[in-house]
Computed example of a mutant assay.
Amino acid sequence: MRRHLPVAVGLLLTATLAVTACSSDSQAVDGASPGAGSQSTTATAGSVLPTVTGDFGEPPVLTFPSSGPPAELATQVLVEGDGRVVTAKDVVVAEYVGQVWGGAVFDSTYDTGTPIVTALADLVSGWAKGLAGQKVGSRVLLSVPPGDGYGTGGNKARGIAPTDTIVFVVDLVDAFGADAAGQADAVPDDAARDTAGPQVSGPPGGPATLTLPAGTPTPADVLTTVLYRGSGAPVAEGKVVGQSAGVDWTGTSIGSTWQTGTPKVFPVAPTDPTFAGLIGVPLGSRVLLQVPAGSGPAVALVIDLVAQPA
Rank of each mutant, 00 (worst) to 15 (best):
Arg2Met: 09
Leu11Ala: 13
Leu12Gly: 06
Cys22His: 10
Asp30Ile: 02
Ala36Pro: 15
Thr44Leu: 09
Gly57Met: 06
Pro59Cys: 03
Val61Asn: 01
Leu62Trp: 04
Ala71Leu: 10
Glu72Lys: 10
Gln76Asn: 10
Val77Arg: 09
Arg84Ile: 00
Val91Arg: 01
Ala94Trp: 02
Tyr96Gln: 14
Val97Ser: 14
Val100Glu: 14
Gly102Phe: 15
Ala104Lys: 15
Phe106Cys: 11
Ser108Pro: 13
Ser108Phe: 13
Thr109Gln: 14
Ile116Pro: 03
Val117Asp: 13
Thr118Lys: 11
Leu120His: 09
Ala121Trp: 05
Asp122Thr: 09
Leu131His: 02
Gln134Trp: 01
Gly147Thr: 08
Tyr150Thr: 05
Gly151Thr: 08
Gly153Gln: 10
Lys156His: 06
Lys156Pro: 05
Arg158Gly: 07
Ile160Pro: 06
Val173Asn: 03
Asp189Trp: 06
Thr195Arg: 14
Thr195Asp: 13
Gly205Gln: 11
Gly206Arg: 11
Pro207Met: 08
Leu212Gln: 09
Thr218Phe: 04
Pro219Cys: 05
Val222Tyr: 04
Leu227Gly: 03
Tyr228Gln: 00
Arg229Cys: 01
Gly242Phe: 04
Asp248Pro: 02
Thr250Lys: 08
Ser253Gly: 14
Ile254Ala: 00
Thr257Cys: 04
Trp258His: 09
Thr262Tyr: 06
Phe266Lys: 03
Pro267His: 09
Thr271Ser: 13
Thr274Phe: 09
Phe275Asp: 05
Pro282Arg: 04
Ser285Asn: 01
Leu289Thr: 01
Val299Trp: 07
Ala300Trp: 05
Leu301His: 05
Leu305Gln: 04
Leu305Asp: 05
Val306Met: 06
Ala310Val: 08
